[in-house]
């Protein structure tokens, strides 16, 4: 027990929370933008897998990180665009379409990986590049704080900036207002001349962009290569985090950090030779408990409102 506590109350642990939370922050913000637009999208897992693979292929063949990031974004957003086309234009069921794209992501990435590298498990044969870590001058010299904040991957800082970006987008721009109105009452939006399908499409593409950054981080930052099914449900945890945050930016960010801490904790416990399968459950149990708390709270509020009306 002591070993666990001394591990948790250390700068390295907090550092690792940020490291592990980065993809969750990205995908939960993506889910938030899309949800505000009133679209139920569960295809983030598929988007992230394709963007992670795209990043590896791009950077390996061009030997250039920027090409890697671009190819990752293109592949991830292509999945978002397919989802948007099916759901918004062809009016197909969002859950089924999302499910199909996730399965396509799982199988399709392995297939492409095998074609390119001859390996079905990981991309270690390809010499893909990583996005560098950076030390922040001055701050890195501050004890403890420096150890926590400095030295992260570039994309971790981008994730933190994305929190601010999404907050401004949703709450402070005309587009954000339109996304929210379309999500809440499409008829109201339509009656004042807002194009509902177009607005939802934009929301989905912004979501696809942000989620793809999360996928790219997984194969160019968190790990130096692509492995099959490397998202391990992060796409869904992101959806859960924005649910916990009730569609609000900062609560969603906190929820993503919370899930990240659970994952960091399970990593520590594994190194302490607790059974690893048990510990891998921790973040998912966190997710379930979190959803339970939100759900219970909502029910209570609803019944209170009813009681008031009596």
């Amino acid at each position: 027990m002591d070993a666990i506590f001394s591990s948790i109350f250390s700068a390295e642990f907090v550092f690792s929370v940020l490291r592990v939370s980065t993809p969750l922050i990205f995908v939960s913000l993506a889910a938030l933008v899309v949800r505000n637009g009133g679209v139920m999208c569960i295809a983030f897992e598929g988007m992230m897998l394709f963007s992670a693979l795209g990043a590896v292929i791009g950077s390996a063949f061009a030997q250039n990180q920027i090409v890697g990031v671009l190819l990752g974004l293109i592949m991830g957003m292509a999945i978002a665009a397919i989802f948007a086309y099916f759901v918004l234009v062809l009016n197909s069921n969002g859950v089924l379409t999302g499910l199909a794209l996730n399965i396509l992501g799982s199988g399709g990435t392995v297939f492409m990986l095998y074609l390119i590298s001859g390996d079905k498990g990981s991309s270690t044969a390809l010499k893909s590049l990583m996005i560098p870590n950076i030390n922040i001058p001055i701050i890195k010299n501050i004890p403890i704080l420096g150890e926590i904040i400095s030295g992260h991957n570039v994309l971790t800082y981008v994730a933190l900036l994305t929190v601010v970006f999404v907050y401004l987008l949703i709450n402070k721009t005309p587009l954000g207002l339109r996304i929210r109105s379309v999500g809440e009452n499409p008829h109201a939006a339509e009656s004042v001349g807002i194009k509902v399908v177009k607005t939802k499409f934009i929301a989905l593409m912004i979501g696809g962009f942000i989620a793809s950054l999360g996928g790219i981080y997984m194969s160019m930052g968190y790990l130096p290569f692509f492995t099959r099914d490397m998202m391990a449900g992060r796409g869904f945890m992101g959806i859960a985090a924005q649910n916990l945050g009730q569609g609000l930016t900062f609560p969603t960010f906190i929820a993503a950090l919370l899930f990240g801490s659970a994952e960091a904790l399970s990593n520590i416990m594994q190194s302490l030779r607790l059974p690893s399968e048990l510990m891998q459950m921790v973040p998912y149990i966190f997710t379930l408990v979190g959803l339970m708390l939100v759900g219970g709270d909502k029910n209570k509020k609803a019944s209170k409102k009813e009681a008031k009306n009596e």
Partner: peptide
């Protein structure tokens, strides 16, 4: 309309200007 064309969780002012939002340096 009989059924109101309003987004419930937005404020009155936000509903009022929906579609003709006033802008300041690109922000709402």
């Amino acid at each position: 309309h009989q059924h109101f064309m309003l987004a419930p969780s937005l404020t009155v002012a936000e509903n009022m200007v929906l579609g003709i939002e006033p802008k300041n340096k690109g922000f709402f």
